[in-house]
């Protein structure tokens, strides 16, 4: 049913880790294949992150029409994401993540469908800092990121809204620009394109504005943008951020009336969120992240509300010591 399920991502940032969790929640939408922020982890540092995200919707857009559907009632999606980030060089970071996802409908519902659970997509991403330069009362950063993700298990993508992901390989390319004032205020913009391959259904006929005699479904490519403003507080131990995330598929069909969504649908959404990130002064290398987000507008997607929290731990794997802040 609702393909959009997939599209929720949470924007969280591990402190020094500089990891954008959100990206990973959805391989599908994979906003998250590459970290989209502008933070870099120093060379020889590694960061572990574990986060939990709870997302749910009781309304979704069928084409442009926002509706309820008691067949599925409220659909929830829980995601547990373990991720590791490695500072290969000071200006090149690697990210690897594999989320575990569980979906289900609230009771009562009219459909009595079984939910789904399992590992979703393995994501590998690289982020590279092209430029860091003093400018006025602050610093300018320009980065680029590339990510690749692919289903880690044989989950069924053609089982919306319960499917774990879109079930297709995805390659993402992003550009990131950030400007941070010396007083801790910063603004960041990101634009990227997501190339999706085909997902394989377990049926060999489907309708997508016409007959398709194949089990392969073309998952639409998409544009992905992000705009963020934030500030560091308390000697760079606390960060507060407001963010906007947009996804816009470049092709695809609409969910048909009172019918299930499918991976070929044209998904678009605008989501706003707020994030907090905190570094514990008493435990060097340990940080916490939290995020709340709400999809405010969309096409062929659920009107998701997401809450997530996570812990990060960073250390230098050569010196075997925890690292302090870097100046980003």
């Amino acid at each position: 049913m609702i393909r959009s399920l997939l599209n929720y991502t949470t924007v969280q940032q591990a402190f020094k880790c500089t990891v954008f969790l959100s990206l990973f929640f959805l391989k599908s939408t994979l906003v998250a294949q590459t970290p989209t922020d502008a933070l870099m982890m120093p060379s020889k540092n590694v960061c572990f992150l574990v986060s939990y995200d709870y997302g749910a919707f009781d309304q979704y857009w069928e084409g442009e029409r926002l509706r309820e559907n008691q067949t599925i009632a409220t659909v929830s999606r829980q995601t547990l994401l373990p991720m590791v980030a490695v500072g290969i060089f000071n200006d090149l970071n690697l990210y690897i993540g594999l989320p575990y996802v569980k979906t289900e409908s609230s009771n009562p519902n009219g459909g009595r469908f079984e939910g789904a659970k399992g590992f979703q997509d393995l994501t590998l991403a690289l982020k590279y800092k092209i430029l860091e330069k003093e400018l006025g009362n602050g610093n300018l950063y320009i980065l680029t990121g590339a990510g690749f993700s692919t289903p880690a298990t044989n989950y069924l993508s053609d089982y919306m809204p319960y499917s774990l992901g879109l079930g297709a390989p995805e390659f993402a390319l992003r550009g990131i620009v950030k400007y941070q004032l010396n007083n801790g205020f910063y603004a960041r913009g990101m634009a990227g394109h997501l190339w999706r391959g085909y997902t394989e259904a377990e049926r060999d006929y489907y309708y997508n504005d016409g007959s398709y005699y194949t089990s392969f479904m073309d998952v639409p490519n998409a544009w992905n943008v992000e705009a963020v403003i934030g500030k560091w507080f308390f000697s760079n131990t606390l960060r507060f951020e407001l963010n906007y995330t947009g996804i816009k598929s470049t092709s695809g069909d609409d969910i048909r009336a009172y019918n299930a969504a499918q991976p070929t649908n044209k998904v678009t959404f605008d989501r706003i969120g707020v994030s907090l990130q905190y570094y514990f002064p008493f435990a060097k290398g340990l940080g916490a992240v939290g995020n709340y987000s709400q999809v405010v507008h969309g096409l062929n997607t659920g009107k998701f509300t997401n809450v997530s929290m996570g812990l990060t731990y960073q250390f230098n794997f050569v010196k075997k010591t925890n690292t302090g802040f870097d100046d980003n």
Binding site: L92, L126, A146, F171, L173, G197, Y212, Y213
Partner: peptide, 24 residues
């Protein structure tokens, strides 16, 4: 390494494009 990754990704995207049959 970054460029190599990029290259592989683009090759992968391009290589899986194909027409899907809409009739016998």
């Amino acid at each position: 390494p970054f460029l190599f990754f990029l290259f592989c990704g683009i090759i992968l995207c391009v290589s899986c494009e194909k027409d899907l049959p809409t009739y016998l």
